[in-house]
Design a protein around this nucleic acid. Sequence first.
DNA 1: TCATAATGTGACCGCCTGGTCATATTATGG
DNA 2: CCATAATATGACCAGGCGGTCACATTATGA
Lengths: 221, 221
Amino acid sequence: MDTLLAQPKQTFVNLPREKRENVVRAAVIEFAEHGYQRASLNNIVKRLGISKGSLYQYFDNKEALFLHVFDHFTQQVKQHVKASVAGNGQDDFFAVARQVLLAGITFIDNHPEYFQVYLKVLFERDVPRREELVARVRLFSLEYFGPLADRAVGQGILREDISAHKVVFILDAMLDRFLQGYAQPYLDGGLALAGMSPERLHNEIDSIVAVLRTGLQPNRQ
Amino acid sequence: MDTLLAQPKQTFVNLPREKRENVVRAAVIEFAEHGYQRASLNNIVKRLGISKGSLYQYFDNKEALFLHVFDHFTQQVKQHVKASVAGNGQDDFFAVARQVLLAGITFIDNHPEYFQVYLKVLFERDVPRREELVARVRLFSLEYFGPLADRAVGQGILREDISAHKVVFILDAMLDRFLQGYAQPYLDGGLALAGMSPERLHNEIDSIVAVLRTGLQPNRQ
DNA sequence: TCATAATGTGACCGCCTGGTCATATTATGG
DNA sequence: CCATAATATGACCAGGCGGTCACATTATGA
């Protein structure tokens, strides 16, 4: 799970850090704009002001460059989420969900292009090792919420007529959809999430978490 | 809203129905597999066994062909949903939601390629008139559930601390995500929706609707 | 200083794309 | 039957793609 998807060539590793970062940044932008297949290596080298031959001294081919970019993405998102939730370890199930949602928002704010790359991978065919890439992100969510949901079931926090599996699905669906709406305004169903002030955004999140809490906790009728 | 996005040329209209349907079918398959930009007109004419010149006698260009395909999609989905819900007009808010979800499932079963085209449009940049296309589908959902939610609020069926707008967002998010998971198995969070028997699928749907009902109805604590 | 290794370069290759157009084929109706 | 209109064809075009490679430039260390 934590093994790398692809190694750059030694030449790339030897490069000064700033140049390496430039290359990755330019590649991320191109893949974010056009997805994998339509992304153009010619555009990338043009943007960087280097020759195409150089890029091929850094990576074996387009696929290796792309996988390297995706590696960066997964590393950053995991690190960001874990750091965001770290301080609130003892909170209840839904408070953690809220925290993860907020972490997603700030990640998108900080790295909108990386999230675009992910969205592209979700819905583009012929992306190399697509299932594996998506699974890396998805499994992170499942691994993260799965045990929490199991524990919550044990504590009687969740209603018993729905499996922990399904709880995670519902939670994941809401989080994912909310973040998609935040990243792509025309997906937000008229909520205008994109331009929203942080306070109102927090209100929206609280509303949704409240609905999930009421819907998922044991029945009190 | 109901005006067409693009007209084919007269030559296409004059064609016998079967040939017209063949052309549209081949185009749908190609756009479903590769999205707009990567779809190849050469592939389409090869699959049809006609010359490229002929295709250009039917449509002005790639964009016109694509928009014609999307017109077909929206017409079919609207017709299908309306027909599915028609008999159950007097049901309550959540029963209608359940019915729409079921209609979505059967639509995907009947026309998986059309739904793929829609998913591609959602996440591909540079699709001609993308916002407009997405809006056509989205607005249908909003127009459909919006009035229902308003009425439900008036009847006191929905909790009062959340706007009808937000209710529609949550509902739409769950429906959309469920259908995405059904159409693209690696999006289903391990629920294995794709290969599921109809009975178990209905159980899943009922569970989710139950959670929404409990979460969205007035608080009874 | 100079031989060797590492790195950078861009013209070039074969392939595919959306789109064009002169020409061939077929249908129509007087 | 034949002139005209409608339809079908595929070679061809310019442009972009991923990828290659012979060569130029720079860095290294003895």
